[in-house]
Simulated scan of single mutants.
Amino acid sequence: MARTTYQDLLDAGVHFGHLTRKWDPKMSQYIFMERNGIHIIDLNKTLTKVEEAAAAIKQIVKSGRKVLFVATKKQAKDIVADYAKSVNMPYITERWLGGMLTNFATVRKSIKKMSNIDKLTKDGTYSNLSKKERLMIQRERIKLETLLGGISDLNRLPAALFLIDVKKEHIAVSEALKLNIPTFAMVDTNSDPSNIDFPIPANDDATKSISLITSIIIKAIEEGLDERKREKEDEAEKEAVAAKAKADAPEANEGGKRTRKVAEVAAEGETEAPAAETEE
């Protein structure tokens, strides 16, 4: 079943590319034509590519791993953050810190620092500090929350990245390449799709276009999470049945022993009966 249609892509303005003078020649395979100095993206190829990306990302999520959403451009921030939160996936929407993937251990220390500040406020230590110290800690907490709040639950490197505008997020792309982390991205006509594992040729500037493509990826993630949940429930059910069968086994064995004992007693009775007749 298709997750979107040609008409949906058309209505969202996914086909509008950049000015012809700003294009990247490596995007030529995804360009349908040029109109009024603007490149028009081939939506048939977009449809194929978005379905491929959705199917692949579904399998990643089904295996229990996380997908990191990256969108620091103004028109994509809120859209991507809201969608990522809806499926409990990590996201970066403020600024990509250099080394966020390649130096993940240091990033984890900053996240831990944020949680330590939260502990201070809960155990009463925070209230014992001076006003100046409290203000400094509060400012630091806000800064950490802004930069790292979206990845506070990310305990290990993500299994994949989903990016809006690979040109703007080139540092994230290069770090993912170094670590062999698969990348999924909306790629406009001014960008290079060669470094992206699953490029989706689409307008990455219009909010409608960003929202539509991101929603398709989110639907695929939801499907993956649902299937994983069902599989876990089936496994739990099988384990429960196996445990019950194992628990019932001793009772069955005892029943078998009792049956054999009754048969033995009956057999002994039959052998003793003729002896009694002989004595008479």
Rank of each mutant, 00 (worst) to 15 (best):
M1S: 09
M1Y: 11
Q7E: 14
L9C: 06
L10R: 08
D11M: 08
G17E: 06
G17K: 07
L19D: 12
L19V: 02
T20I: 13
K22C: 06
S28H: 05
Q29C: 03
M33Y: 09
M33I: 02
E34D: 08
H39F: 09
D42R: 06
D42Y: 09
L43G: 04
T48Q: 15
V50W: 13
E51C: 02
A54V: 05
A55H: 13
I57V: 14
Q59F: 04
Q59G: 02
I60N: 03
I60K: 06
K62F: 14
S63F: 13
G64E: 15
V67M: 08
A71K: 03
D78V: 05
A81P: 04
A81G: 00
D82E: 11
D82P: 01
S86N: 09
V87G: 05
P90A: 06
R95Q: 12
G98Y: 15
M100H: 08
N103W: 01
V107F: 03
K109C: 02
S110G: 00
I111R: 02
K112P: 00
K112F: 06
K112H: 09
M114S: 09
N116W: 11
I117T: 05
T125W: 13
N128K: 15
N128A: 12
K131A: 15
K132W: 14
K132H: 13
L135C: 03
L135A: 12
M136Q: 14
M136A: 14
R139N: 13
R141K: 15
R141G: 00
E145W: 10
T146K: 15
L148V: 05
D153G: 10
D153N: 15
D153W: 14
L154R: 10
N155G: 14
N155V: 11
R156V: 08
A159C: 07
A160R: 01
A160Q: 01
F162Q: 02
L163A: 01
D165T: 02
V166Y: 10
K168C: 03
H170Y: 09
H170C: 06
A172V: 11
V173N: 03
P182V: 00
P182M: 02
A185L: 02
D188N: 11
N190K: 01
S191M: 08
F198Q: 01
I200V: 10
N203E: 04
N203F: 05
D205V: 04
S211P: 11
I217H: 04
I218M: 04
I218A: 01
K219W: 07
A220Q: 10
A220V: 07
I221N: 08
R228G: 07
K232D: 10
K232L: 13
E233K: 09
D234W: 15
D234V: 13
A236V: 07
E239D: 13
A242Y: 10
A242M: 11
A243L: 13
A243K: 14
A245W: 06
D248Q: 11
A252L: 14
N253T: 12
G255S: 08
G255M: 11
G256F: 14
K257A: 09
K257H: 08
R258T: 04
K261I: 10
V262C: 00
A275H: 11
A276F: 12
T278R: 08
E279G: 00
E280K: 01
